[in-house]
Design a protein around this nucleic acid. Structure first.
Lengths: 206, 206
DNA sequence: GTTAGCATGTAAGGAGTTACATGATTTT
DNA sequence: AAAATCATGTAACTCCTTACATGCTAAC
């Protein structure tokens, strides 16, 4: 049952969908794509690749020591089963898809879903965050200065993400209307710029 | 060696520092304080309390079935050893303190540190984030629309957090100058409002 | 020739989640 | 009397990290 947090696997499949890659390179791209806070370590990547091999989602590819680099490396390629799994997962717009990590993942591969799925995911995510805000507002704040400031900050951030999502939804709707699908770059309906979800920004540290 | 991610333990000690509490209540406050994304579960809280008992940081308190609620509950209290550990941890302004979770924790308990420590932590955090931005900017973006948008979003968020920190630092410096320590609420030197760190906003779901 | 960075892995363990299990007390 | 919610715990499992271990190749 691949139901829960198979985030890493999905990300790998998403990247391999574009072109075959070897582990080391995969890690770099993964860190660009999702690993903003803590960098993904080899200790989780390689075992994950092994699991995926066993699941039949990827295969090793003949490395053929070609023209340039004659380095020993194991190149992985996505299989039809892998493609099928990937597609079914990112197409599933259920509650699991509005969760932080999960949402980011799906968003990153939105190009491979169709408009109705994107819409459902964006809207689901937005109401998920809205609920959090409502629940948080229903609770009294502590008296501590710094804790208050932290809460204020957190709340504002979520509010911003909600606006961001609202803009994206609007943009999606607009591009659905003028049949020829346009870029999803939001039109900044509101004043201020958006916020990030849960992630942070960073890359290779090695 | 209590060096790494003893975030939960520290948060518990921080709360017990104010008043003795029982597990159930502790969880609620913990979720208010730090557990914004995923709620803390009993499955991690209770074992943590056991560990802390063994470490001698907390003790059980005679529950004396007093006036109101005669409910069976185990009330915990911080010990001198616990206080000492807590203080030494939140006073440590080393690199571990600029990490996301760790930073939030320390920030929440800033009232219990002195100005110089606060300053070092805020500045450390800021340059940590600045580095991430620099590294991210040094890398070419992918061609995918949505991935580009996600990156833009993430970058903007970090930039905002940097501004937030800059404002806090300024406020701290200012209140250090006019000797009588004032509220750290920043003076919004820049135009836009701030962003949240890594966390999300949410509370009790149960 | 030596250093830096490419490349792949394993073992141990930390930190938390879900699901299970149980029961008391308060509210309706 | 039933339902909600307070209250405490355990066991199995997931996912990831750190630290270790190894060796190749490109550049200086």
């Amino acid at each position: 049952m691949p139901s829960k947090g198979a985030t890493l696997e999905l990300a790998v499949l998403g990247l391999l969908h574009e072109s075959p890659l070897h582990g080391y390179e995969l890690r770099k791209r993964l860190n660009l794509l999702l690993g903003w806070t803590r960098l993904l370590s080899y200790g989780s990547l390689y075992p994950a690749l092994k699991r995926m091999l066993r699941s039949g989602w990827i295969t090793e590819v003949a490395t053929m020591s070609s023209s340039v680099s004659r380095r020993q490396r194991i190149v992985y390629q996505i299989t039809p089963a892998g493609t099928e799994f990937f597609t079914s997962e990112i197409t599933d717009a259920g509650p699991a898809a509005w969760e932080d990590e999960s949402f980011n993942m799906r968003f990153a591969f939105f190009s491979r879903t169709d408009a109705s799925v994107r819409m459902r995911i964006l809207e689901g995510r937005r109401s998920r965050l809205q609920e959090r805000l409502d629940r948080a507002r229903a609770l009294s704040a502590g008296s501590d200065r710094y804790q208050t400031e932290l809460r204020r900050h957190a709340t504002e951030s979520v509010e911003r993400e909600v606006r961001w999502l609202a803009d994206l939804i609007e943009a999606e709707r607009a591009s659905q209307d003028r049949s020829g699908a346009q870029a999803p770059r939001p039109t900044r309906s509101t004043t201020a710029p958006p916020v990030v979800p849960t992630t942070d920004l960073s890359t290779e540290i090695s």
